[in-house]
Amino acid sequence: MMELVLALLIWAAGWGLNAWLARSAVSETRAVQFLVPFIFGATLVLVWEMVVRGLNVPMVILPAPSVIAMRFASSLPILWVDFVQTFLKGALGGYVIGCAAAFLVAILVDRYDFLRRGLLPVGNFVAALPIVGTAPILVMWFGFDWQSKAAVVVVMVFFPMLVNTVAGLREASAMQRDLMQTYAASYGQAFFKLRLPAAMPFIFNGLKISTTLALIGAIVAEFFGSPTLGMGFRISTSVGQLALDMVWAEIVVAALAGSAFYGVVALVEKAVTFWHPSQRA
């Protein structure tokens, strides 16, 4: 009972603090912009902890954050091995191959108008389909190890990346292209000096969308069969053993890996497309 009252108090205090911060004069500063969501998140975690303790929620339904944190700290080696298997080998391997292949195909598609007409609608169509469904087929073809997960990721990231890159390569305006022509620039010169830089915001958009897809693909593919390691494998077996603290620990890893991956790509984008209006704000 005590804990439930405490949970209510914490919630009220956190929300009140945020309301005060948001209305205060310093609400536009960077520190506060960062602090407010942090307080909100911390409040949620504390309330979660108190409610789980107060109601004696069994661990097979919802473990308390402290239990998850302890499990996380005590099984770092397992989590690391799973992370290497699923993220570094499966997701990252497939991401690099898939994005590179899509980029090269996009250059071809852009070069030949016929391909652009024909392949782009097909690509747009495929990009909206539930491609994770190919996982059982690819697991059958490439075996249980990370190669099949990388293959799923390749298929998942290929079309979003292709569509974005092709759209980007058409971004340079007719005026700019004409200017290149008056300079007697070759295709290669115009490509590297004008069209590729102009395409960068679109390419990075594709790269950013693909980061999330890559992790989803690698994790879901492991539900269809994997060696005895990997984040998806650990999640599905731990769920079977009702070891939910382990499941949550893996989810924390997945969340950290996903946002770090996205963050790194966004940082590179900032460095490459520093000239773009959206980055100069």
Binding site: L21, R23, Q33, I219, I235, V239
Partner: peptide
């Protein structure tokens, strides 16, 4: 609501970058 904007919106954006589908089996 400015409070909700400042506290919830960043989490909604971050949630786009994490594979929340991993929660499904649980």
């Amino acid at each position: 609501s400015r409070v909700m904007d400042m506290s919830v919106m960043p989490w909604a954006i971050v949630s786009q970058t994490i594979p929340i589908i991993a929660l499904a089996p649980m």
